Measured scan of single mutants.
Amino acid sequence: KLATQLLVDLAEGCHTHHFNSLLDIIEKVMARSLSPPPELEERDVAAYSASLEDVKTAVLGLLVILQTKLYTLPASHATRVYEMLVSHIQLHYKHSYTLPIASSIRLQAFDFLLLLRADSLHRLGLPNKDGVVRFSPYCVCDYMEPERGSEKKTSGPLSPPTGPPGPAPAGPAVRLGSVPYSLLFRVLLQCLKQESDWKVLKLVLGRLPESLRYKVLIFTSPCSVDQLCSALCSMLSGPKTLERLRGAPEGFSRTDLHLAVVPVLTALISYHNYLDKTKQREMVYCLEQGLIHRCASQCVVALSICSVEMPDIIIKALPVLVVKLTHISATASMAVPLLEFLSTLARLPHLYRNFAAEQYASVFAISLPYTNPSKFNQYIVCLAHHVIAMWFIRCRLPFRKDFVPFITKGLRSNVLLSFDDTPEKDSFRARSTSLNERPKSLRIARPPKQGLNNSPPVKEFKESSAAEAFRCRSISVSEHVVRSRIQTSLTSASLGSADENSVAQADDSLKN
Results as ranks from 00 to 15, higher is better:
Leu189Gln: 03
Pro137Trp: 03
Ser49Gly: 06
Leu116Thr: 04
Leu70His: 01
Thr79Trp: 04
Ser51Cys: 11
Leu236Trp: 06
Leu91Arg: 13
Thr162Pro: 11
Arg80Asn: 02
Ile65Gln: 01
Arg207Leu: 05
Ser76Ile: 09
Val187Asn: 04
Pro161Gln: 11
Cys139Met: 10
Ser96Tyr: 11
Pro165Arg: 14
Gly166Leu: 13
Val140Asn: 05
Phe252Ser: 02
Lys153Asp: 12
Ile89Val: 07
Val204Tyr: 00
Ala50Phe: 07
Gly156Ser: 12
Ser234Arg: 07
Gln90Leu: 09
Gln190His: 08
Ser155Ile: 09
Pro222Ala: 06
Arg213Trp: 03
Leu208Ile: 04
Leu192Phe: 04
His77Glu: 05
Pro157Ile: 14
Arg175Glu: 14
Arg134Thr: 07
Cys229His: 03
Leu217Pro: 03
Ser136Pro: 02
Leu99Ile: 06
Ala231Met: 05
Ser150Asp: 13
Asp197Val: 02
Gln194Arg: 10
His88Ile: 00
Leu242Thr: 08
Arg123Trp: 02
Val86Met: 07
Lys199Pro: 13
Leu52Gln: 11
Lys94Ala: 13
Lys69Cys: 02
Ser211Ile: 13
Val132Asp: 11
Phe219Thr: 14
Pro160Ser: 13
Val179Cys: 14
Glu195Gln: 00
Val200Lys: 01
Leu66Cys: 03
Pro164His: 14
Leu126Ala: 07
Tyr214Thr: 05
Pro239Ser: 11
Gly177Gln: 09
Trp198Gly: 00
Met235Ser: 02
Glu243Val: 06
Thr162Trp: 12
Leu52Val: 10
Pro167Leu: 14
Tyr71Ser: 03
Gly61Met: 00
Val140Ile: 09
Arg134Val: 09
Lys199Ala: 13
Asn128Gly: 09
Gly125Ser: 03
Asp142Gln: 05
Ile218Gln: 03
Gln190Leu: 09
Glu151Thr: 08
Leu73Lys: 11
Leu85Ser: 02
Lys152His: 13
Arg117Trp: 01
Pro127Tyr: 04
Thr79Asn: 06
Met235Tyr: 03
Val81Ile: 06
Glu151Lys: 12
Ser76Cys: 11
Leu232Gly: 00
Ser51Lys: 09
Thr57Glu: 12
Leu70Met: 08
Ser155Trp: 11
Gln190Met: 09
Arg186Met: 06
Asp226Ile: 03
Leu189Cys: 06
Arg186Ile: 04
Ala118Phe: 02
Ile101Val: 10
Leu203Thr: 12
Asp130Ile: 05
Ser51Arg: 07
Tyr97Leu: 02
Cys229Met: 04
Gln190Gly: 05
Thr162Phe: 13
Leu66Val: 02
Gly166Ser: 11
Ser234Leu: 07
Asp226Trp: 02
Thr57His: 07
Ser221Asp: 03
Arg246Lys: 13
Asp54Leu: 00
Ser87Lys: 06
Leu201Gly: 00
Ala102Asn: 00
Gln90Phe: 08
Ile218Pro: 03
Thr57Pro: 01
Pro239Trp: 08
Ser221Tyr: 02
Ser155Met: 13
Gly251Val: 04
Pro161Ile: 14
Leu121Phe: 10
Gly149Gln: 12
Leu189His: 03
Val133Ala: 05
Leu183Tyr: 11
Pro164Leu: 12
Cys139Val: 12
Leu176Ala: 13
Val64Gln: 15
Leu189Pro: 01
Pro209Trp: 03
Asp54Lys: 00
Pro209Val: 12
Pro161Met: 12
Ser120Arg: 15
Ile65Asp: 01
Val179Met: 14
Val133Pro: 07
Tyr181Glu: 02
